[in-house]
């Protein structure tokens, strides 16, 4: 900060500096404490959930509630795995999320590139169309879409789930921004002069340059499908076709419900998705952050 000073500081000034530094340290400490409390509060519900998963039914009903299980048990987990096709639901969710990710990344990459580098009037109109519908919430049109899935005969299947999650307007937008900012026209022109075909250019030049953006988009798309609820809820009505979200939600509508088991099932789902998130955090943050840069 005060590197510009050329004159020797007086004793008073030194003391003042020390005081300021101490004050700054104290402020930082206070901020850290505050943020730590906030962080813990944010994580606490999830910690509770995991803790509940290990509690016995008796402890679950005891008052006051305990935070750390007194007598940890894994009975809840074995009961849940025995009673519900939990693994199958997780499998359905993963399959759905992965296929949706692939579809979204593919459609966004191509469309984003075309909209970014082929500024024909038709393309601009089409792009405006994509953007305009981006603000229409899925919930608005999911009922007609449901009947389309029905007439295709793909209800209760992976394909039915997928139908609602094939394109993402934001993905197209994100790729287009990246194409405009990070792929110079000269590069493409040079390749064309060398006689490269348009498809070759797309696959060999454009795609590799978009790796970062597509990675971020992939993570976004994956989590979007992984946490989808309303659509799977109406499309998947057989036990074997539920995604994990729907399976869990309906698991608790059974006749008599055991909170410990419910927590165990929830924890089983939560832990892998948190791990995945921590692993891919940077991609994710990059992707989400870019959603805010529309302007």
């Amino acid at each position: 900060m005060d590197t510009m000073r050329t004159i020797e500081p007086t004793a008073d000034e030194l003391a003042e500096g020390r005081r300021l530094r101490r004050k700054k340290q104290a402020t930082n400490l206070a901020i850290d404490v505050f943020l730590l409390i906030v962080s813990i509060m944010m994580l606490l519900p999830l910690v509770f959930l995991v803790a509940n998963a290990f509690k016995t039914p008796a402890e679950m009903l005891s008052w006051p509630p305990t935070i750390i299980p007194r007598d940890p048990t894994i009975a809840n987990f074995s009961a849940v795995l025995g009673e519900t096709p939990l693994l199958r639901w997780i499998g359905n969710s993963i399959a759905f999320a992965v296929l949706s990710t692939i579809a979204i990344v593919a459609t966004s990459a191509i469309a984003g590139y075309v909209f970014g580098k082929f500024r024909f009037r038709t393309m601009n109109i089409l792009f405006a169309l994509f953007l305009a519908t981006a603000i229409v919430p899925f919930e608005v049109y999911m009922i007609p879409l449901y009947f389309q899935a029905k007439s295709l005969g793909i209800l209760n299947s992976l394909w039915g789930l997928l139908l609602g999650y094939l394109v993402m307007s934001f993905g197209i937008f994100l790729v287009r921004q990246n194409v405009i900012h990070s792929i110079p026209d000269e590069l493409l022109e040079a390749a064309r002069i060398d006689g490269a075909g348009e498809f070759w250019i797309f696959f060999r030049i454009v795609l590799p340059l978009l790796r970062g953006a597509l990675g971020a988009l992939a993570v976004l798309a994956f989590f979007q499908a992984w946490t989808a609820f309303a659509w799977p809820m109406i499309v998947a009505t057989t036990r074997s076709s539920y995604t994990i979200e729907v399976g869990l939600a309906l698991f608790q509508t059974g006749f008599t419900v055991d909170l410990g088991r419910l927590s165990a099932a929830s924890a089983t789902v939560l832990i892998p998705s948190i791990l995945l998130f921590v692993l891919l955090r940077r991609n994710f943050v990059q992707g989400v952050a870019s959603t805010g840069l529309k302007e």
């Binding site: 790796r211 970062g212 990675g215 891919l280 940077r282 990059q286």
Partner: peptide, 9 residues
């Protein structure tokens, strides 16, 4: 760093 992460994903 970002490209490493991309590879992971």
């Amino acid at each position: 760093n970002a490209s490493v992460k991309t590879r992971i994903s």
